[in-house]
């Protein structure tokens, strides 16, 4: 039996939730005070995901970089792979919010899109 402690981030209360796992399966969730906490804890211990926000280099823009994000969540353990994969990407201005900066970043199946306009 594996025990995992985490802090719920669904609301400011920040419940300390304890999840008991057996062979990777959730056996019990305690400490949460609402169903949203249970949902968060379950997904956080089995397949935690994050949206990654970062920068890529920009040629010909008003600034040397432009902000980007993963269009959807990527597995938490892939966060650093995503930013590393962005290292060699260079876009050329103009760029607009929603433009695709990179497809299937770091093999996650998720695209990276531009989040600022630079004309």
């Amino acid at each position: 039996m594996e025990k995992r402690e985490l802090t719920c981030i669904r609301c400011p209360i920040g419940c300390h939730i304890t999840v008991e796992l057996e062979n990777g399966e959730v056996k019990s969730i305690t400490g949460n005070s609402c169903p949203r906490g249970e949902e968060y804890a379950a997904s956080e211990v089995t397949h935690p995901v994050r949206c990654v926000t970062s920068l890529v280099r920009l040629k010909g823009g008003s600034r040397p970089v432009v902000s980007v994000k993963t269009k959807g969540d990527v597995p938490k353990e892939k966060m650093m792979d995503v930013v590393k994969a962005l290292k060699d990407i260079e876009l050329t201005a103009p760029v607009h919010i929603g433009d695709i900066a990179a497809e299937n970043i770091a093999g996650t199946g998720v695209d990276v899109i531009v989040t600022s306009n630079d004309d």
Binding site: T53, S67, T115
Partner: peptide
């Protein structure tokens, strides 16, 4: 503020700072 977490109340979706401003 290029990180996300903006707009959950206003636009009911999670935006980055520049997107929210835009």
């Amino acid at each position: 503020c290029i990180h996300n977490g903006f707009g959950l109340h206003t636009f009911k979706e999670e935006l980055t700072g520049p997107e929210y401003a835009a």
